[in-house]
Nucleic acid binder design. Sequence first.
RNA 1: GCCCACAUAGCUCAGUAGGUAGAGCGUAUCCUUGGUAAGGAUAAGGUCACCGGUUCGAUCCCGGUUGUGGGCUCCA
Length: 590
Amino acid sequence: MLRLYNFHKEAFMNSEKKTEVKEGFIELRHTSSHILAQAVKRLYPDAKLGIGPAIEDGFYYDFYVDKPFTPDDLVRIEEEMKKIVDADYKLERFTLQKEDAIKFLEELDEPFKIELAREIDGEISFYRQGEFVDMCAGPHIESTGGVKYFKLLSTSGAYWRGDEHNPMMQRIYGTSFYTKEELDNYLSFLEEAKKRDHRILGRELDLYSTHEEVGPGLIMWHPNGAIIRNTIEDLWRKEHLKHGYKLVYTPHIASEKIYQISGHLENYAESMYAPIQIDTARYRLKPMNCPGHILIYKTKQRSYRDLPIRYAELGTVYRYERIGTLHGMLRVRGFTQDDAHIFCREDQLLDEIRGVIRFMDFFMKTFRYEYKPYLSTRPEKYIGTDEIWDMATKALKEALRLEGMDYELDEGGGVFYGPKIDIKLIDALGREWQGPTIQVDFNLPERFDVNYTGSDGKEHRVVMIHRTVLGSMERFVGGLIEHYAGKFPLWLAPIQVVVIPISDRHNERAIEVKDRLFENNIRVELDDRNEKVNYKVREAIVKKVPYIIVIGDREVEDNTLSVRTISKDLGSFSLESFIDRVKEEIEKKL
RNA sequence: GCCCACAUAGCUCAGUAGGUAGAGCGUAUCCUUGGUAAGGAUAAGGUCACCGGUUCGAUCCCGGUUGUGGGCUCCA
C-alpha cells in the first residue's frame, strides 16, 4: 500500500496507538471476516464463498449470491455476527493434502474455493469455528470472542478475482478494532473525512461545479477556484522559465494524422473521443500534449549543443473515462496537465531526471506535502531493446539515489514505452490518485523520428522525458482542498482578508482600508452588510478567510485595525504593519 | 462499463395508505447601528431530475434515461 502524502488520516490513526502492535490487526480482521462469512452462511446457506482478507482499515468478504445484500441485510448479518462473537468459538487450524482438500470443498460445494485450491501446491490449511469451516492461510486470533468491536460498513459488487469477465460477487466491507475507543475513533474519522471531501468543500467554498447540461467529468471553475488555480499556474510558469523550460501552446484539436504517427489511434483509441469531420479531414480532441511538442521540436535541425530542450505547457486534454470511474475533480474527462517534454541526449538523461525530481520536490514542499516516489519498471508488454530499458531504469534509480529519495519499487508497473517514477496523491479517505509522474519514452522519438546532430556530424535519436510536477490542475487542486481541509494558506486563499465595519459610521474607514489592501495586491473583501459583527465574523470563519479585520469606534479613533485569524485574536495593528505582514506571508507562502 | 443505492427550494433535509408539498439555513425588503462563531419581522422561491406506463388522478407505484454516491474493473 502506498502512502505518500502526509496525511490527516495517518496523523489521526497513529495518534492513539503509536506503540501498539499494528500487525495484530491482521489476525483480528481476518477472523472478523470469517465471522462475517459464518453469519452470511447461516442466513443465506446458498451463498458461495469468495475471498475474505484483512485490509488496511478493516476487512471484507466476497460472496456469490442470487440477490445482492440490502442495508437491512447488513443489519441482520451484523446481529448474527454478534451471536458468533458471544459464542466464542475457538479457531481450529487443520491441514489436508491438496486432493483431500478439493474433495472436502466439493462436499461443501464451494466452487470458488475449489478454483483457488487447485492453484495451491502441497498442504492446504483450513480454519474451523463452530459449524463453519473456511479454506484459509491464516493467521487468526484464538477465538471469535476476541472480535468485540466491529461494524459492517458497506456493500458493493466486485468481480471474481478482479477480472471483469468473471462473475460479479457481492462484497461486504467492515472494520474491527481491539477497543471500543479505536472503533469510535475510526468511525468519527470517517465522519470528519466527509467534511473535508473536496466535493463538499468545493460547493461550500464556491470553488467549482459540474453540470448535467455540460456533461459528467467536466469541471466549471468558479471565481474562488479559478483564483487558486491561477495562483498556482502563475508560480508554475515563473518557476519553469527559471528552470530552463520554454513555454509553448498547442491546439485542443488536431488532425488524426498526428495520432496515427504517434500510435495513439492504434493503442489508445478507446480513450479518445470520436472524430470530428472538418472539410476533408478527421480531427480529434487532444488526449496528450506530447505529439504537439515533438512537432515544434522537429521544425528545425537540432544540434547536440541545443540539448536539452524543455517544452512546457499547461495543456488541456480530453480523455474518455468510463462513467463509473469519474470522481469530483479527481477523475475527470477534461483536464489540464502541467505537462513538459524534455528532449535530451542519452548522456544528459541522468541530470535531467535529477533536475525534474528536484523541481517536483520544490512544488511538493511548497504545498507542504510529504510524499514518496514509486519506480515502475518494465512491464510484460513493451517496446524497445533491453539495453535501452536497462539504461533508462538505471538512470531513474540513480537519480532517485543521488537525490536521496526513498522509493518503492513497482516491478513491471511501467508503461509499454518506458519506465517511470510516480507520485500518488491521497484523498481524505486515503484513496490514491496518480499525481506527478516522470516517464522516459522510447516510443515517440522512434515514431516521429526525433533526432539531433551529434558532434560526429551524424544523426542521433533523442531521449524524451514526459513529466508533470503536479499532475493535472483539476486533480491537484481537488487534492489540495482535501489536504488543507479547505483552509488554504494565505497565498492561495481565494479571499485573504475580510474587512468588517461594526456600524455604518465605520464604513468610510473600512473602505479606505479595503482600498489600501487592494492596491497592495491583497485579495480583500468588505463586508458592509447590515448585520452584527458576530454574524459577519462567523461567516468569514466559515468561509475560512485567513484574516478578519474589525473596525469600530476604537479603531477609527486610534487609526488601527483589530485583526484576528480563524482561531485567534491577534490584537491591534497599524494599517502599514498589517500590510507588511500579509505581504510577507504571501511572499513566503505560509 | 459492472453491482448496489440515491435524486423534493440555492444548500441540508422532512413529507404524502396515490388527491400537485414543508422546515432550517441562504436570498430580498423592513426594523435594529450591534465589539469578534448565527438580533427580529415579513416576503419571494418547487413541472418533487427527465421521458413513458398504470390510474379518475402520480412527487409517491412500474419501466426507461440522465446525473450522483460507495465499490469493482480501467486509468497512455
